[in-house]
Design a protein around this nucleic acid. Sequence first.
RNA 1: GGGGGCGUGGCGAAACUGGCAAACGCAGCGGACUUAAAAUCCGCCAUCUUCGGAUUUGUGGGUUCGAGUCCCACCGCCCCUACCA
Length: 852
Amino acid sequence: MIPEYDAKAIEAKWQKVWEETEAFKVQEDESKPTKYVLEMFPYPSGDIHMGHVRNYTIGDVIARYSKMQGFDVLHPMGWDAFGLPAENAAIKNNSHPAKWTYANIETQRESFKRMGFSYDWDRTVVACDPEYYRWGQWIFLQFWKRGLVERRNSPVNWCPTCETVLANEQVTEGECWRCHSAVEKRDLTQWYFKITDYAQELLDDLEKLGGWPERVKQMQANWIGRSEGADVDFMLCDIDGNAPAEPSELDTITVFTTRPDTLFGCSFFVVSPEYERLDYIMEGSPFVAEVEQLKEEASKVSAVERAQGNREKHGVFTGRYVVNPINGEKVPVWVADYVVADYGTGAVMAVPCGDQRDFEFARKYDLPIIPIILEKDDPLFEKLDGVSERIVDTVDWENAYEAEGILVQSGKYTGMTGGKHSEAVDAIIEELQSKGLGHKTIQFRLRDWLISRQRYWGNPIPAIYCEHCGLVPVPEEDLPVLLPDDIDLSAGELLATHEGFVNTTCPICGAPAKRETDTMDTFTCSSWYYLRYTDPHNDQAPFDPKKANRWMPVDQYIGGIEHAILHLLYSRFFTKVLRDMGMVDFDEPFTNLLCQGMVKDEKGETMSKSKGNVIAPEDMIARYGADAVRAYILFMAPPDKDLIWDEGGLAGLYKFLNRVWRTVYQLVGSEPSESQSGAEIASEELEKANKALLREMHRVIGKVTADFGRFNFNTAIAALMELVNSISNYLKVPPAQRDADLCAVVARNLVILLSPIAPHFSEELYAEALGGEGSVGDLEWPEFDKALAAADEIEIVVQINGKIKGRVTIPADAAQDDVEPLAKDMLADQLAGKDIKKVIFVPGKLVNIVAK
RNA sequence: GGGGGCGUGGCGAAACUGGCAAACGCAGCGGACUUAAAAUCCGCCAUCUUCGGAUUUGUGGGUUCGAGUCCCACCGCCCCUACCA
C-alpha cells in the first residue's frame, strides 16, 4: 500500500527535524567556496504576504541548490524593524512600538518556518535591537569623522501626515512614499549624509554590475543624473539698473547651463521663488509686493501638482537687472515658478530661442526672443544677411529650437555649430573662463541624503548640543544611545519632550547639555545589515572585516524593484564609504541582483488590504501545504515577471506532487501502476523502454540544472513534469519485468531534483520510499551526463525554401552527405523540374533544400 | 517631455546563440473505474479545411535559404522619472 501524501504532517515533521539537527547552520568551512544568497529583509508589518512568499521561495531554492552543489552557503534572515507603522500602531493601541514589532516578527518567523525556508536563525539581525543599532550609530560617527555628515538649513520635503522630513528618494510624484500624502516644502535645519561626494563613482560603478537588471541600473543612472555644462556668473546691477563697476561676490548670481553656446540669446533671467538670495535681490525694489504674492502662491501649489509637469508658468519681474557676461547686455531678472530651487543654482539664464520652457514663458509675458541658433536651411538666414541691427522676436516660431544648429547673431561665434556638445560650447566656456566669469562644471541631480527624522521609533542620532562646546558627537564608548522605553506616544510624547532622554551632560566639558532628538532614516539600518549577517554577534565592532570579506559581496540578492533606487543606492554608498574606511575590500555590495515580479490577484490588480483581495499564505499552506505553494509560485511565471494568482493552478501543482508521490512509490515498489495493462511485453520493447527512461532522466538532469542556473524555475518544473510523464509511460511495463536498478536511480534523482522546490516532500520520499539516510539537502546534486542524454536516432525536418515538407529519422551523428540524398529522394515529386541552388543542413535540426 | 520594458491559443506560459511555434500546466470536452460523486487513469484541445493541405506570434515593410527571435516605421499596453536649465 502506498501511504497517503499528508502535506501537513510531513511538513511539521521535517521542520522539527531541521530545527533539531540545525540543518541550515552556516558551516564556515574554509575548504568550500562560499555562496551568499540574500533576500531583502522584510518590514514586520503583520504577517507575511504572497510577495514575501515569492521573494523568499526564490531565494530558498537558490540557497538549497547551491548547498547541494558544494558551496558553503550563507542564507540569513532578519527584520527591518524601525519605522513609522510600528509607531502609528503603538499610538493607536496605546502601546509601545517594540511590542507590536516583536509580535509581528514572531508571527513572520513562524510563517517562514512553515514555508520551510532554510535560514540560519542563529544569525538573525533585528534592526531595532540595541545590539544592532549601536553599530549603526558607530558607523554614523565614522561618517562624521570623515566629513560625510552635515547639519544644514535648506528647503526640505515635509510629510504632514508622518510629521517628519523625507529624503528626496522618498518622494514620488510629490507624494510621501509611505502614506502618499502630498509633500510640503519647508525650510529646516537637518542632518545629511553627503552621498553626492560619491555621485561620480556611484554612476561609474554601475558598469561593474553585470549581474544587475539593465533597467535598475538605468533608473539609478537617471536618478544620479549627471549633466555636463558650465557655471556662468551674471552680475547684479544696482537698484537704478547700472552695471557694477567692480564685480562683487555678493552681487554675483551664478547659473548652471548645459547650453553656454546659447548665451547670446539670453533675453531675461529667472530665479526660483525659493531662491536663497531672493530677499537680497528684492531690497529696495518697488516690486516686493508682487514677488511676495508669487512666492505665496508657489508655496501653495502642491508638489503633486508641480510634478504634473507642463503646468502654466507664472512669473513676475523683480525690478532688477543682471549683466550677461558674454556681451555685457543688461537683462531683466524675473521670479518664476518653473525654476526649481533644488537643481543647479536655483537660477537660470533664459534663452527662449533654444529652450522650450523659456520660450513659453517669453511668449506669455511678451519678453524678447532672440534667434541665435538655427537649423541649416532656416529661411531666417536670408533676413539676417547684411543686417547690422539685431533681429529680435521670431513671431512665426511655434517652438524653441533645441537641436543642434548654426549660431547666428552671436558675435564672433556666429557661424559656429551650436548644440549640447558642440564646438561653440567649448569656445564660449573658454572665453568665460579667461574673464573669470565662468567655468566648465558637472551637475548631478542626486541630492545629499537627508537622514534625520522627527520620530521616536528609529535609531537615535548620537549627537549632543552643549552651550559651551557646540555640537558634539557622542563618544564611541558611550554607545549605544538607547531609545527610552518609558514613552507615552499616544499622549503625544516625543523624544524631544522626554526629559530623561534629552538632558545629558557634555562629554567634553561636563556641563549640562541636550541630546539630539532626531532619529535616523530607517534606510540607514538597511544600508549595512547584509554585512552584519557575516558576523552577527560581534560586540566589539559592527563586523569583523575578515568575515565580511570572506562572504561578501552578496552573490545573489533578491528583492522587489521598488528598491531600485532607495535601498540599493544607499547600500552602494555605504559600501563605498566602508571601503574607504578600510573595513571592506570590495566596491559593490551585491554582485547579482534579481528583482522578482509582483503577485497580483485574478484580475491582475495588486493585492492590498483596502481592496480586500489579499490571498493569505497561511490559508494556502493549510489547504495545499507549503511545498505545493512553493512549487506553484515558481511554476506559474518566470521570477522577474508579475504573477497572476490562480488557485486552480495551485491545486494543479498539489496534484502534481501527489502524482510524483505515487510514481516514486510505484518505481521502487512492486505495485502495478494505474496505467498498466498487466500483459508481459517483448524483451526488445523492454530494452527500448529502459533505454528511453535512462535517456530521459539524463536529459531532465541537464535541463533542470541549466534552468536553475538561469532562475528559470518554471521550465525546470515543466521538465520534471515531463520526466514524471515518461516514468508513467515506463510503468506500463509489468513490475516483474522492470529494471530495478534503473527504477531506483530514476526515483532517487527525481526526488533530489525536486528537493530545492519541495523540500519537505522530498525529505519524506527520500527517507520513507527510498530508505535514504540523512537529509536530501546534504546529498550531492546529480551530475549531468551529456552522452547518456543523447538519443541514437533523431527526427529532423525536411524543408524546401524554408517550408516544412516532411520529416526523416536519421542516426544522431549523420552527416549532410548521408541526409541529403534521403531528403531529395523523399521530395522527388516536389523537386521535379526545379533547379536546386543549395542545400542547408543544420545537424540535429533540419535539412533545407533551396530550389527554384 | 525623457528613460526602460512588453505584445504568442479561452487563461498562465514555452521556444538558450535566427532553425519543427504553442513544451508544461490551468480551464474545457470525451472515455475508463464507481451504485454515484470525488480522487485516479486514458484520450482530444491555435484557426480554417473540399481532409490533399492552408493560415497563424499587435500592424505594415525589410534583411535571410529560413524571422516569435534581427532592422525600420506604426498601433496598443505597462513601469520608472520629470518644468533638471
